[in-house]
C-alpha cells in the first residue's frame, strides 16, 4: 500500500510539474511577446515622430522587458536547455543599451529575434503528437 501511495504521489508530482511548466511558459512568453509588440510600436513611432519623451519611454520599456526576463529567467533555466534560451537572453541583455544609444535599427532587429525565440519556446512546450514522434 505504501508503494502504491508513493507511485501515485510521484505521478501526480510529474504531471503537475509538466502542466505547470506548460502553463507558466505560455503565460511568461505571451507576457513578454505583448511587451515586445508594444516596444516595436514605439520603435516605429519614434521613426515617424521623434521626441525626447518618446525615446525615454522607449528606453524604459526595454529596461522593463529586461527586468521581467530577470525575474523569470530562473524558471526558464529550470525547465529549458541552456542553448535554447542563451540567444534570447543575449538579445534581451543588449536591448536597453541599444535603446539608450538611440540605435533604433539594431533594437528593432533584437526585438524581432526575441519574439521569434519566445514563439519557439512557447511552441516547444505544446503537447502535440508531432513533438512526441
Amino acid at each position: 500500500m505504501k508503494r502504491v501511495i508513493i507511485a501515485i504521489v510521484l505521478i501526480s508530482v510529474s504531471v503537475y510539474t509538466g502542466i505547470y511548466s506548460l502553463n507558466e511558459t505560455k503565460r511568461i512568453c505571451n507576457n513578454m511577446i505583448s511587451r515586445i509588440d508594444t516596444i516595436t510600436e514605439y520603435n516605429t513611432d519614434i521613426l515617424e515622430n521623434d521626441n525626447h519623451d518618446k525615446r525615454v519611454e522607449f528606453y524604459k520599456k526595454t529596461q522593463n522587458l529586461h527586468d521581467v526576463w530577470e525575474e523569470n529567467s530562473k524558471f526558464f533555466y529550470f525547465f529549458f536547455n541552456n542553448d535554447d534560451i542563451k540567444q534570447l537572453e543575449l538579445n534581451i541583455e543588449k536591448l536597453p543599451e541599444h535603446a539608450k544609444n538611440g540605435d533604433l535599427e539594431t533594437t528593432y532587429l533584437c526585438l524581432v529575434e526575441c519574439k521569434e525565440e519566445l514563439e519557439y519556446i512557447k511552441n516547444s512546450v505544446k503537447l502535440n503528437f508531432d513533438n512526441v514522434f
Binding site: R3, V4, I6, A7, I8, L10, I11, V13, S14, T17, G18, Y77, F78, F79, F80, N81, N82, D83
Partner: peptide, 25 residues
C-alpha cells in the same frame, strides 16, 4: 551535459518508478 536541466532527468525517473510500482501491483 550541464546545459540540460536536472528536472529533465528527475521527472522521467519518477515516472519510471511509478510505472514499475503500478506494474508490480
Amino acid at each position: 551535459d550541464n546545459s540540460i536541466p536536472l528536472i529533465n532527468s528527475l521527472i522521467p525517473v519518477m515516472i519510471l518508478i511509478s510505472l514499475e510500482i503500478i506494474n508490480s501491483v
